[in-house]
Design a protein around this nucleic acid. Structure first.
Lengths: 141, 141
DNA sequence: ATATACCCGACTATTTTAGTCAAGTATATT
DNA sequence: AATATACTTGACTAAAATAGTCGGGTATAT
């Protein structure tokens, strides 16, 4: 059970964006250099963030990205969903026909995974980008 | 972020073992049939469970497995660790040299993933196999 | 003897993740 | 107008993890 780089990078990049936030757009090149994330990979990630209205883009020279709303209003869950980093714990309902269907007939562990999923999503729903900025100190990069 | 089948199967199989618990060993064949998990895959999983002293085996005809202690004393975290299903959220400290090292210099998201890991592990530490048995009803398989 | 069932390492196929590439389009600056 | 910067898009590839199989054991009850 692990978190993917894509999800991690998305949050890192947005935190960077929130930290250096000005009225001017910030280029992916800058974020790439500061956070050590491949530029090409960042491009892919930011397309999704843009589609999900988490960032707004400015094209051309001096272009880049800005947050679409205040950092404190961007939940981590929102970010992870945007880059398709969903929390999935249950696989038992996939081959529906026989066995656990999650409704009338449940496997003995079904509720456990359900609870776990809620537990994790709850965590991501309670944290926002603003929290990350607030919590940092002088050793934070 | 998802849970692997291996971890899921391990918990399912042990719950099955706890449910049908008698003084006689229970064969993997029975568990395989009841839970719909490949016998060969179960063998692989139970070798690890055995190495970690979660089950004891009886070889030969009428052989099989039994729990090594009371179901209420087997934590889910123990089971998942036994089959190498660790919770890993942090990848930023891998290329140690520059950037986040998790100690003197931390990336802005480091604490977040640390907290998440604790949050998930906490969940698994609080749940045991006994809880699953207690919580079931007549529709549970 | 023989069938059952655990034991063990190696192997393969599938899926997911991670990251790259090529070929654009838009815009500020010179 | 030319140019460099930087976003846009879809497809492509490589690497890693997962899921599951295979073959050839050994132990034991009947």
């Amino acid at each position: 059970m692990k978190l993917s780089n894509k999800g991690r990078y998305a949050v890192m990049a947005l935190a960077d964006l929130a930290k250096f936030n000005t009225n001017k757009p910030i280029s992916l090149r800058d974020i790439s250099l500061r956070q050590g994330i491949s530029l090409l990979y960042l491009e892919q990630i930011f397309l999704k963030l843009k589609k999900n209205k988490i960032v707004v883009s400015a094209r051309g020279m001096n272009g880049g990205y800005n947050l679409n709303k205040d950092a404190s209003e961007i939940k981590i869950s929102e970010v992870l969903n945007a880059v398709d980093e969903k929390v999935k714990t249950i696989g038992c309902t996939k081959d529906s026909k026989k066995g656990c269907n999650g409704k009338s007939v449940k496997c003995i562990t079904h509720n456990l995974w359900d609870e776990l999923e809620l537990h994790i999503n709850d965590f991501f729903n309670k944290k926002n980008l603003g929290d990350l900025i607030k919590g940092r100190n002088e050793n934070t990069i």
